[in-house]
């Protein structure tokens, strides 16, 4: 069990602002010197795909924020293996270096999880 906080992203980059606001929370935590890791699961794995643009709704893209995570000392980016498989995605095709994981075993090791 770790005292780090885990940010769990379950929503796709567009359609709602959950993914964006969750990634923002992770960046703010990093900027404040908190120990934060992040995991992408469910439709959240779509946030990690390359070649995203801002989109027609005027929402900013989330990928530049995800690529900035290491600059905020958030080095560990997990992605749920099952969510990738269900959507026909390979970890090697993602835009960032993410660690494939079993979601339940990751979440079980964090005392605090903030879910988006």
């Amino acid at each position: 069990m770790t005292d780090k906080t885990l940010i769990l992203i379950r929503h796709a980059p567009h359609g709602t602002s959950f993914a964006r606001e969750g990634i923002e929370a992770a960046l703010v935590g990093g900027a404040m010197g908190m120990a934060v890791d992040i995991v992408f699961a469910g439709d959240g794995v779509f946030c990690l795909l390359p070649d995203q643009s801002a989109g027609a709704l005027g929402q900013k893209g989330t990928l530049p924020m995800i690529k900035a995570l290491p600059m905020y000392d958030i080095e560990t980016i997990f992605v749920d293996r099952v969510a990738l498989q269900q959507r026909g995605l390979e970890v090697s095709a993602l835009a960032v270096d993410a660690i494939e994981c079993e979601l339940a075993s990751v979440t079980a090791s964090y005392r605090q999880i903030v879910s988006f």
Partner: peptide
């Protein structure tokens, strides 16, 4: 700020 959310979570037993 949203940083306070993470701080509150870390100082609580459950979120």
């Amino acid at each position: 700020g949203v940083g306070q959310l993470l701080a509150s979570a870390q100082s609580s037993d459950r979120t």
